[in-house]
Write a protein that binds this DNA or RNA. Structure first.
Length: 578
RNA sequence: GCCGACUUAGCUCAAUUGGCAGAGCAACUGAUUUGUAAUCAGUAGGUUGUAGGUUCAAGUCCUAUAGUCGGCACCA
């Protein structure tokens, strides 16, 4: 665990390293002008305008070398405080710095400038004392970045880098990056034949048999767990008429990203969300307060025309399956229902060995609908539910959707990377737009509270995360092929191998027999490469004793067990989802 | 969509200043009968993403276009 002091020190170093990099860039590209160079979760970046010139990835070593030179030279970093007019004069050749300074207050702001040798930068600080302290750094990538983060603006060049106290820490960081590359789900998806994406359908993944099995297992697990939680299930159409999307408001807000089709002079849109369909189902019958909370699940396939540059393997696709559910309830039921949901989500994530943190996003300053009192009560209910469930929850003020507050679940994978998957969102908009009601005890019609929630988020994306989390070596219950039987001599032991396979198949174990005319080592190797959890070797010895030799994925050694004992152990491992 | 890089056999990659498109693995055929990460030999496999252009000659240079990747913007 890194403590706060070390963390601050690391941030200061990275910030100073951003300055060091900018200094080096200025030496190599005198025309360069600089916007900002902040510290980020992993390292730092600096946004630079090279006036038409371009830094390429291959130029990074050159910049690093210049940085090393400056570091060795070891200039001290000195803080200077100046007035606004002095600052404007000092940076008169850099329009970006002028822009920053112009936004500062005339009188009461102290403007600080950090100087190192002949180079200086407008900066709040703090910084390390000398460039000498910056030794263990690496520039990682270059990219474009819009000025002020606004796509209407020109693009600057952004250089990313990291800096550490010790070479060991830097090496460890670079090792983690390499490890992440090895686990890339796009690479493993190809190697393990899980999915493919054709150039005929950018962003539309195809599921290959192995991936389809994985998907089926996840959906099946999802279904069973939801039955336990009192959910009902529906399926709503992929395509519904334009008028429906006008009622829901999606037409107005997301039309650009919706796939549409007009035939017989009527326009239909492929659903980008499941909710409107779900609401039509709710409205299909009358509901009593006695039916609430009503939990309705749908594994719904949605399509969204994402920007071409946003597509990324299974992480960002144009069609995906939300493990959606809508819960309709009274305001009094919010807290207990959310507690129940948090515990539910907790149970699911634990199965995958994923830890997580929860964030509560509250009412936006300006753009929101509904009654402020209801917002306050809902936010309080969500927060209280977190605490009742024994969970911490970080508050993101003003980060909620315009239609309601939400709890987001940020999961942490085996490489320490964070992904937002689950979310619980209250919706004060759609029940109003669709005029949803239930009959209260006094016979009057009341408006239910609606809650959207997903656990996987998108099944496709969740599988992408799981592939990387497990590095493609899935636990027994998820492995597309759970075991492969390798008869030592295909001619002599193949029959027994198939008999054993039949027995295991009857127990719903996903089994393969590799009785190809290849050496044992060759077949074992292939099973290891395809990350099949266990290899079962069957030869004369095993046939004589009704035993089986078991070697697990990633292990060198093997053990021999009576077949009955092995089967019992295997079934236990599967049922316990280890 | 924007900035940049990339695209050669099913996969992973070669191919000198523009000068005969090649290897390993996989596939197929045959031999081999296998005890825990690659048995041997042979065969086949390509309009070098696509469409144009420059050139005596283009995988290589130029233009356009599609897709992928790394970021940016976006992510109901």
């Amino acid at each position: 665990m890194i403590n706060i002091k070390e963390h601050e020190r690391l941030n200061v170093m990275n910030h100073s390293c951003a300055h060091l990099m900018a200094h080096a860039v200025k030496n190599l590209y005198p025309q360069a002008m600089f916007w900002v160079g902040p510290v980020i979760t992993d390292g730092f970046y600096y946004d630079i305008d090279l006036g038409g010139d371009a830094i390429r990835e291959e130029d990074l070593p050159k910049i690093e070398a210049e940085m090393k030179k400056l570091s060795k030279d070891g200039k001290r970093i000195v803080r200077v405080e100046v007035s606004k007019s002095e600052a404007l004069d000092m940076f008169k050749d850099d329009k970006y710095k002028i822009d920053l300074i112009s936004q500062m207050n005339e009188d009461d702001t102290v403007i600080s400038v950090y100087k190192q040798g002949d180079w200086m930068d407008l900066c709040r600080g703090p910084h390390v004392e000398s460039l000498k302290e910056l030794k263990n750094f690496k520039l990682l990538k270059v990219s474009g970045a819009y000025w002020k983060g606004d796509s209407e603006n020109e693009m600057l060049q952004r250089i990313y880098g990291v800096c550490f106290e010790s070479k060991e820490e830097l090496d460890e960081h670079l090792r983690l990056i390499e490890e992440a590359k090895k686990r890339d789900h796009k690479k493993l998806g190809k190697e393990l034949e899980l999915f493919m994406i054709s150039e005929y359908g950018p962003g539309f993944p195809f599921w290959l048999p192995n991936g389809m099995m994985l998907r089926h297992l996840l959906e099946n697990f999802w279904w069973k767990e939801h039955v336990k939680e009192g959910y009902q299930f529906i399926q709503t159409p992929i395509m519904l008429s334009q008028e429906l999307w006008q009622i829901s408001g999606h037409w107005e807000n997301y039309r650009e990203n919706m796939y549409t089709s007009t035939l017989d002079e009527r326009t239909f849109a492929i659903k980008p969300m499941n909710c409107p369909g779900g609401l039509l189902v709710y409205k299909n019958s009358l509901h009593s307060y006695k039916d609430l909370p009503l939990r309705v699940g749908e594994l719904g396939l949605v399509h969204r025309h994402e920007a071409s540059g946003a597509l990324n393997g299974l992480f960002r696709v144009r069609n995906f399956t939300q493990d959606d559910a809508h819960i309709f309830m009274t305001e009094e039921q919010i807290e207990s229902e959310v507690v129940r949901l948090i515990n539910f989500i907790d149970r699911i994530y634990k199965v995958f060995g994923l830890t997580y943190s929860i964030e509560l996003s509250t009412r936006p300053e300006k753009k929101y609908i509904g009654d402020i009192e209801v917002w306050n009560r809902s936010e309080a209910a969500l927060e209280k539910a977190c605490h009742s469930a024994g969970k911490e929850c970080k508050i993101n003020p003003g980060d909620g959707a315009f239609y309601g507050p939400k709890l987001d679940f940020h999961i942490r994978d085996s490489l320490g990377r964070v992904w937002q998957c689950g979310t619980i969102q209250l919706d004060m908009n759609l029940p109003e737009r669709f005029d949803l009601t239930y009959i209260a005890p006094d016979g009057s019609k009341k408006r239910p509270i609606m809650l959207h929630r997903v656990i996987y988020g998108s099944v496709e994306r969740f599988i992408g995360i799981l592939i990387e989390h497990y590095g493609g070596a899935f636990p027994m219950w998820l492995a597309p092929v759970q075991a492969v039987i390798v008869p030592v001599n295909p001619d002599l032991h193949s029959e027994a191998a198939h008999a054993l396979a039949k027995r295991l198949e009857d127990l719903d174990i996903r089994i393969k027999v590799d009785d190809r005319n290849e050496k044992l080592g060759y077949r074992i190797r292939e099973a290891q490469i395809t990350k099949i959890p266990v290899q079962l070797v069957l030869g004369d010895g095993e046939m004589a004793n009704n035993s089986i030799n078991i070697r697990r994925y990633g292990q060198q050694n093997s053990e021999t067990l009576p077949v009955d004992e092995f089967v019992a152990k295997l079934l236990l491992e599967i049922s316990e989802k280890r």
